[in-house]
């Protein structure tokens, strides 16, 4: 459904600022595909290329079987785009915004109401309120409705959950799940690694390079090292101390734990515990854990 080949894009004079380098991605029809990466990785740039807003310097891309450069006019009818920044008319009401976006695609709210029904029922009580006066979560829902109202084949969502509370985020992902059932291909970007597991397949992006493209499960299973979660009284000193331990590849903070990465079978739980004990740390806790997407990301980033 989406094929990206050799896409590169630079900004600035003489193109010193490399935003994307040699990107390859392919997204299948009906897939919920996640583009995961930190801020500034190039996610939005890739979105803008695929939604025909800017031109790539190199390479080609097809969306819904249409070239993003040559067939951009046709393509615009088939894609829905929800930018990262809320960009609807703040001075128009909820209903007016929706009606306007429906009308410029030559359709009506009624025609595709079934697509947005689940989301719109929550907005309905506020339908005469101006969009600018909605809460953050409601704005996201309205933006999603507006991007969906013309029944796009492919939906591009650029960081839809950034700055949204945990409950709304969860709700939002449930909505995406339902949209997938309708057969809409969804291409979503997010800086939150924990959302990756909700996608069918993901691509990890960093500094304009795709690090990996896989299903979340396979990505995690491709993590070949042992991983330990460690807790002690002085976390920062413990991190430095653990780096001295033989066969330890990497130690990094992860929530309330330190994650200790080592080659498979070279380091044991007890060894870490004893090392910390003998170095004078207290309240030590060492657990053998499974890698998360974020661990994979860290791993790929360093290799």
């Amino acid at each position: 459904m989406i094929t990206v080949q050799n896409i590169s894009k630079s900004f600035g004079k003489n193109g010193q600022q490399k935003a994307l380098t040699d990107i390859h991605i392919s997204v299948n029809k009906g897939e919920l595909f996640g583009l995961i990466g930190p801020d500034g990785a190039g996610k939005t740039t890739l979105f803008r290329i695929l939604t025909t807003l800017i031109l790539a310097d190199q390479g080609s891309a097809e969306v819904a079987g249409l070239d993003v450069v040559k067939d951009y006019k046709m393509l615009r009818k088939k894609l829905g785009y929800m930018p990262g920044r809320f960009s609807l008319y703040q001075d128009l009401s909820v209903a007016e915004n929706l009606a306007f976006y429906a009308s410029i695609f030559n359709t009506t709210i009624e025609a595709n109401y079934h697509l947005i029904q689940d989301i719109y029922v929550q907005l309905e009580p506020f339908k005469d309120r101006r969009a600018g006066a909605l809460s953050g979560g409601m704005k996201q829902k309205l933006a999603l409705c507006c991007a969906l109202i013309h029944k796009p084949e492919v939906l591009f969502l650029d960081e839809p959950t950034t700055g949204v509370d945990v409950v709304s985020r969860k709700e939002f992902w449930e909505m995406l799940g339902r949209l997938k059932m309708e057969g809409i291909t969804i291409f979503v970007s997010t800086p939150y690694m924990d959302e990756a597991s909700l996608c069918d397949r993901i691509a990890l992006i960093q500094n304009g390079h795709i690090l990996s493209e896989n299903t979340p499960a396979e990505l995690v299973s491709a993590f070949k090292s042992d991983l330990f979660g460690v807790k002690a009284d002085k976390m920062n000193d413990a991190r430095k101390s653990l780096l001295d331990l033989e066969n330890v590849d990497d130690v990094y903070a992860f929530g309330e734990f330190l994650h200790v990465k080592s080659n498979k079978g070279t380091v044991h739980q007890k060894e870490i515990f004893d090392h910390l004990k003998s170095s004078g740390f207290e309240d030590i806790e060492v657990l053998k854990i499974d890698a998360t997407i974020e661990d994979c990301f860290m791993d790929l980033m360093h290799s």
Binding site: T51, T52, L53, K73, R76, K77, L79, Y81, P83, R85, F86, S87, L88, Y89, Q90, Y101, I104, F105, N106, C146
Partner: peptide, 13 residues
């Protein structure tokens, strides 16, 4: 400024 022009640009307008 408010970004609505992007929304219009991806539409068939």
């Amino acid at each position: 400024e408010i970004g609505t022009i992007e929304q219009l640009n991806v539409s068939p307008i």
